[in-house]
Structures are given as C-alpha cells and as structure tokens.
C-alpha cells in the first residue's frame, strides 16, 4: 500500500468557503473548530453554484503513489493551485476528503503532521523566505516543529547539501539569483523531511537558467531521496520530464497518464487551451502519431520517418 495522497471526490469553491478560510490560522486555535462546524452548514454546495461561485475544484478524485512525479497542467483558473493547497491542509474540501498517508487534512489536531509530510513551495521566491540568512531560513520549519538544536543543524546542512546551496548558507537571500532563492525555498521545505514535495509553478518567475537549476534539483531529489513530487507548471517541457501528467480544466481532471499518453492527445489539449512540448508539436506537424519527449527521441522518430518514407518511395 504505497498510496501517499488520496483525493476523494473533492469539491471546493472560494466563494462558498469565504468565511471558513479563517480556519487556516493553525491548529489548536479555539475558533478553528467552531468555524469548521459552521462550514458544515454549507457542506453540500451546488456544484454549479452560479454568481461567481464556480467551484475551483469540482469532484476531483486522484491518487498519488510514493515516488511518483506528477505534473499538474491547466490554464489559469483551472483549479491547479487550489489542488496543491489542498495537499497540506491550507485549504480543506467543502465536500469529499483529502488524505495524506492516511491522515485527513481536515483533522485539526494533526495538521502539523500533514504539513510536515507535504512541503509546499510557491511561485515567488521572494515572498516565502522568512529569515535574513539562508541557513536560518532553512531552519525555520524545524524551529517551529520544536526539533532540538543539534538535530536542526544536521538537517539544515543536509537539506542545503541536497539542493546544492551549502556554500551560500550564510548569505543574505535577497542577494541570490531567482533560481538560488527557489532552491533555498525547496531546502526549507526539504528540511522537514517531507514525503511529498509540492511545488506551485516554482519556475514561473525564473529565467531559463534558474528554471533548469530548479528542475534539476527537483528531479534529483525524486531520484536520490525518493521524494514524491507534485508540481504545477505552465511549461510543457517541464511536464514532459515528469512521470505522470494530470491535466485540469474548470476544477476537474480531464487527462491523467504518462506524458506520452497525454501529449498524444494534442487536439484535446489544444481545446483546453494548452499546447504540447515542441518535440511533440514537431512530430505531429510531420503527421506522425508519436509523442517524443526528448530531443533524442524526436530525432529518432524523425529519422525513422524519413527512412521509412525513403524506403517506401524508392
């Protein structure tokens, strides 16, 4: 049983959630349980509630296994960021359940446990770094969890090593490049020793070089540390690097499969306002029924095509 995350028919709408969002202020707060109950009042919102009440998530069922890398695609407003915020209980479903390692994200008293299991990294690296020194920022989560100082030191060093930022550990974050800042943010999540690393468009504000750094880091963490990765992205090339692609549209999952499977359905993707990686676009432009994801694959597909065409013609 290596299922690590489970979404069961999850419905969420920001309009309907309005007030219950206040409950996000943390576990154990006296008010949290109460407003949680008041949210029960509108437990069953109409899925197609009008007047701006379009659900951000509309019956999402999803299962992620340990060690997977999942790319979540979708145009703006498709609900992918909401999906990610569900992973660690930042948002809790209006109906349905989200379970992380068997713990429901709605269980107020186990919220810290869930947050520790799912490290979340956001788009803007500037807005998620708390401390003025890199290593102190990485230590932030562990300090919050009440880990003994000596162990914090060890885990911070390990996390910085894992993202390749050891030599910057005494630097001021605002002097780092975007890619470096984002790697610090990843280290900050990684220090918690999470099972899942969830990233919400981690490369959106970075230059190509920073994007490469971040993607390389994330993939290495998956490969070497076995961290499960859930990543929202707009870049098809990044999605192609993942083992699994989930395409969302208007709060629902439309496509779910390996990158090859998903990108082969280019017409459906286009209808959802999405493109395909350039290699796939090229192959399809040639009229091939293939979805090569790497340059080498693409070259081979085209080579086969040209040779096949030549032998058929001659």
């Amino acid at each position: 049983m290596d299922e690590i995350i489970r979404f069961d028919n999850v419905v969420y709408s920001y309009a309907a959630a309005g007030e219950s969002q206040e409950t996000m202020s943390g576990p154990g707060g006296g008010g949290a349980a109460e407003s949680g109950r008041s949210a029960d009042g509108h437990r069953q919102p109409e899925p197609d509630a009008g007047a701006g009440g379009t659900p951000a998530l509309d019956g999402v069922t999803l299962s992620v296994r340990r060690g997977e890398t999942v790319a979540v695609l979708g145009h703006n407003g498709s609900g992918k960021s909401t999906l990610v915020r569900m992973l660690n209980g930042l948002l809790t479903p209006l109906s349905g359940t989200v379970t992380v390692c068997g713990i429901g994200t709605g269980e107020e008293d186990r919220l810290l446990e869930v947050r520790q299991k799912v490290g979340l990294v956001f788009q803007n690296p500037d807005n998620q770094i708390v401390a003025t020194v890199v290593e102190e920022d990485v230590a932030f989560a562990l300090e919050n969890l009440g880990v003994p100082p000596a162990e914090i030191r060890e885990r911070v060093d390990a996390a910085l090593r894992d993202v390749g930022m050891v030599e910057y550990r005494e630097h001021a974050p605002h002097r780092l490049s975007g890619g470096q800042k984002q790697r610090v943010a990843i280290a900050g999540a990684l220090a918690m020793d999470p099972l899942v690393l969830a990233l919400d468009e981690p490369t959106a504000m970075l230059d190509p070089r920073g994007r490469g750094e971040v993607m390389e880091t994330v993939r290495r963490l998956n490969r070497e540390r076995g961290v499960t990765v859930v990543m929202v992205t707009h870049h098809m090339n990044e999605a192609a690097l993942c083992g699994r692609v989930v395409v969302m549209d208007r709060g629902r999952i439309r496509l779910d499969g390996t990158p090859e499977d998903v990108f082969l359905r280019a017409d459906e993707l286009r209808a959802l306002g999405l493109g395909v990686p350039q290699t796939v676009a090229l192959a399809r432009g040639l009229g091939l029924d293939a979805a090569p994801l790497t340059d080498e694959d693409c070259a081979r597909v085209i080579f086969d095509f040209v040779r096949g065409g030549a032998s058929a013609g001659g």
């Binding site: 996000m24 202020s25 943390g26 576990p27 154990g28 660690n88 930042l90 810290l112 947050r115 520790q116 490290g119 979340l120 956001f122 803007n124 807005n127 998620q128 708390v130 290593e135 102190e136 230590a139 932030f140 989560a141 562990l142 300090e143 919050n144 969890l145 009440g146 880990v147 003994p148 100082p149 914090i152 030191r153 911070v156 943010a185 900050g188 999540a189 918690m192």
Partner: peptide, 20 residues
C-alpha cells in the same frame, strides 16, 4: 504570501519553538 508560506512550514506562534 509570506503568511501562507510560514503556515506551510508549520508556523504556529511562539509556543514550543526551538532555535537552531
């Protein structure tokens, strides 16, 4: 943004905090 990011890293006020 920062408040959300802090929450994600288990910030829950001063109680039970340690320092590196």
């Amino acid at each position: 943004d920062l408040a959300v990011a802090m929450e994600c890293r288990c910030y829950h006020g001063g109680g039970g905090r340690t320092r590196m």
